[in-house]
């Protein structure tokens, strides 16, 4: 299993390079370092959400309320900015508040044993409602510059700070999942919940922690959002969850839990980003773009089946090779 995963990740890298080459032929504007770096900006906030979601999915659960948590975080940031609170105070409080919302999901799922799709479908509406009540209909736009820094500024001329933040988050969560007890336990629970419980893992607590992590990351994504779009309102990031789930599934994280890693999710985001960037620069019509990305997602879901089919064709074509041991 651990051998097959890098293979998919390698496939994603090849796909991305092919998509980049294709983009370069589609548009003369594509092949420029400034342009490519700047385009990463569009994928940072869904990317941070996807990294958090990946942890939850590894546990065999789902969280579709993350985009709503982001909206709540964005509105909360606007309250701190309006109160002229310093950003170093606002960030930990907002991240903690969003983590608390995530933990609430976790408690409902793990302690009460409710299905995670139903729970987070409910909180998706509830958290967004909370954001609408807390915020104003017209939205808040007069953020202090310090609040906008992460989402809007660049380092060395063209490297978006938000992209650096994303890389840091992905690296940290990647290490957490691969190199720590927490991560190993997540995979163990995802593969076999009962056996993990019998082995003495507190499954419920682990799930609550994972949901809290995903929620906290959504708070961080909110910081990127307000910088990039300069606006906080209840409907922020409405509909973004589709792209987030796409990235996680395409990244090779098994929707049933236990398999896949952060690297795959990051590579899937690069692939999606490269394709959207290339097609966007070539002004490809919207429906065509949706069809291409949808086909990509189906390919991601069908991946194991495709591999099996290819193997079968291979056996049919070279029966002697396959039957050699007989």
């Amino acid at each position: 299993m651990s051998r097959r995963l890098p293979q998919w990740e390698l496939t994603l890298v090849v796909f991305t390079l092919v998509a980049a080459a294709w983009s370069a032929t589609l548009s003369p504007y594509y092949l420029s370092l400034d342009q490519i770096l700047n385009s990463t900006r569009q994928f940072v906030y869904p990317g941070i959400l996807a990294v958090g979601l990946a942890v939850v999915v590894v546990l065999g659960e789902i969280d579709i309320s993350l985009a709503s948590t982001l909206a709540f975080g964005a509105v909360l940031f606007s309250k701190f900015s309006a109160a002229a609170a310093p950003i170093w105070l606002a960030v930990p409080i907002v991240v903690a508040a969003c983590a608390a919302l995530g933990a609430l999901n976790g408690v409902l799922v793990a302690r009460l044993g409710l299905p995670s799709l139903a729970v987070t479908l409910g909180t998706m509406g509830a958290f967004r409602g909370l954001a609408f009540i807390l915020g104003s209909e017209t939205g808040y736009t007069s953020f202090d510059d310090s609040y906008l820094y992460v989402g809007s500024e660049e380092l060395l001329g063209s490297l978006p700070i938000s992209f650096v933040l994303f890389c840091g988050v992905a690296l940290a969560v990647g290490v957490l999942m691969r190199r720590t007890v927490f991560g190993r336990r997540c995979y163990a629970v995802g593969l076999n919940k009962e056996a993990s419980w019998a082995a003495g893992i507190d499954v419920a607590q682990l799930k609550i922690q994972a949901y809290a992590l995903a929620g906290g990351l959504a708070g961080l994504a909110a910081l990127v959002w307000i910088g990039q779009y300069g606006s906080a309102r209840g409907d922020n990031a409405d509909g973004a969850i589709l792209l987030v789930v796409t990235a996680v599934v395409l990244g090779g994280v098994d929707i049933n839990g236990g398999r896949g890693g952060i690297l795959g999710v990051v590579l899937a985001l690069f692939l999606l980003g490269t394709m959207r960037n290339g097609m966007g620069l070539a002004n490809v019509a919207g429906p065509t773009q949706t069809i291409v990305l949808g086909a990509l997602l189906i390919a991601g879901v069908l991946r194991p089946a495709i591999f099996r089919a290819v193997a079968r064709v291979y056996r049919l074509m070279f029966p002697r090779l396959a039957d050699a041991p007989n």
């Binding site: 990039q228 966007g280 773009q289």
Partner: peptide
Amino acid sequence: AGADHADVTLQVE
């Protein structure tokens, strides 16, 4: 050019 549904993040992109 533009996206095929009204989504502000896609419009910004």
